[in-house]
Simulated assay, not measured.
Amino acid sequence: MFAVYANEANADDPLASLVVGERPDPEVPEGWVKVNVKAASLNMHDLWTLRGVGIKEEQFPMILGCDGAGVLDDGTEVVIHSVINDPSWRGDDTLDPKRTLLTEKFQGTFADSVVVPARNAVPKPAGLSMTEAATMGTAWLTAYRMLFVKSGLRPGQTMLVQGASGGVSTALVQLGRAAGIRVWVTGRTEEKRALAERLGAHQTFESGARLPERVDAVFETVGKATWSHSMKSLKPGGIIVVSGSTSGPDASAELQRLFFLQLRVTGSTMGTRDELADLLAYTELAGIRPQVGAELPFEDARKGFEDMLEGRTAGKIVFTR
C-alpha cells in the first residue's frame, strides 16, 4: 500500500530519512479495526520520529502520522485516537505507563490504511469534513485537555497563548474564545498575529512584549524562548500549562518567582479517548471549525514536512487522499 514513512533515524537531517513509497498491507489483530485513511494531519511528533526521538531503532521503517480520519470497512466515518493503551489499563489513558502513540510502536496514519484498537476509532460528526476531522486527534485534543481539564480557567478570565500559528496554539485561540475567555496571543510576525486575531484572539502582542496586565493562565508549547515571559506574565496564583517545548526544554525555573507568587506549573500530554469524543461534540455545539493552513495530497508530503521544519505554518498541515 502507499505510505509516507521514516526508513531510519536521522537526528541531523530528519528529511533525509523521509520516504514516499510503498509498505506492506497491515494485518488486523483481534479487537482492532482497519481504518481506510482519507486525511491525516502533520505534527511536530512526526519530525521527532524522523530524528529518532521516542522510537527504538528496531521499530524502523515506521509509517508516520499520529492522527487522521477515515472510514471503517462497514462505512462508518471515524476520527482516530492515537494513544494506544495496554489492554489491562483502567483509568486516564494518558497516565498508563505502558501507553504508546502511533508511530512509536505501531504504524501511523500516513498510508492507505491504518489499524488501531476498536475503541480508538471514534465516530466522526457529520458536520466535520475529513480534512477538518484529521486535525482533532492530536493538536486539538492537546489544546482541549490543556484548557478544559488542566487550567481551571473560568469564562471571563484571561489566558495568554505563547506562539500564534501552530496547530495547538490556533486550537487554543478558537476554543478559548468560544468558551468566553479573554484570549491574548504572542507571535513573532505581524502575519502570525493577524492570523490569531482572525481566529478570535482579543488582542495580540509581539513575542516578549509587556502585557497590559497579568493573566490567569499561560499556555506553553514553545519552551526556552518564551518561558521567562510566561512566568512574568502570570497573576499571583496563576498557572502555566505546558504541552511542548519546540524551542528547547532548557528553561529557567525562576524558583523565587514561583514560590513567592505561588504560581503553578502543570504538564499536559494529549488527551483521553473520552475527551476526544467530548471535543468532537463541542466543535459541533459551538460551530467551531479548525484552522487548516495547508491541504496537500499525500504524494506531496515532503513539502509539508519542509514547511513545518522551517516554521512556515498558519494552522494545521493536512494530507489527503
Rank of each mutant, 00 (worst) to 15 (best):
T170Y: 10
L160E: 02
Y144N: 04
V149E: 14
M136I: 05
M136L: 15
K124Q: 05
A164Y: 09
Q174V: 01
M130R: 05
T131C: 03
G127R: 11
T158M: 06
P125K: 04
N120A: 03
G156T: 13
T131L: 08
E132D: 14
L153V: 15
L141P: 06
G167S: 09
E132I: 05
V122D: 00
T170M: 13
R154C: 04
T131Q: 13
L172I: 03
V173F: 10
T170H: 09
M146L: 03
M159C: 10
A133F: 11
M136Y: 06
V168H: 09
P123L: 13
S151R: 03
A164N: 07
T135C: 04
G167I: 07
T138N: 15
S165G: 06
G137W: 01
G166C: 08
F148C: 05
A143D: 11
A121L: 05
Q157Y: 02
A133G: 10
V149S: 15
A164F: 08
S129I: 11
T170S: 07
R145K: 15
M159Q: 11
A121C: 03
M130F: 15
V168D: 03
A171P: 07
A171I: 02
R145Y: 07
Q174T: 00
G152F: 01
S165L: 10
G152Q: 06
Q174K: 06
A164E: 12
V161N: 10
A133L: 03
V122G: 00
T158R: 15
L147P: 08
V168M: 09
P125D: 08
L128R: 07
L153A: 13
T158G: 09
R119N: 14
N120D: 15
P125S: 09
E132N: 05
P125I: 04
T158K: 14
F148T: 11
A118C: 01
T158N: 00
V168Y: 07
T138M: 13
Y144W: 15
Q174N: 01
L141Q: 13
G163R: 12
P123T: 02
N120W: 03
A133K: 07
T142G: 08
M130H: 15
A134F: 09
Q174I: 01
A171Q: 04
G137K: 03
L128F: 06
P155Y: 07
P125C: 07
T138I: 13
A133S: 13
A121Y: 11
P123R: 07
K150Q: 14
T138H: 04
S169P: 02
G156K: 12
L172M: 03
G137E: 03
K124F: 06
M159K: 01
T135Y: 11
L147K: 03
K124T: 02
L128A: 14
S151P: 10
K150P: 00
S129Q: 10
K150R: 15
A126D: 15
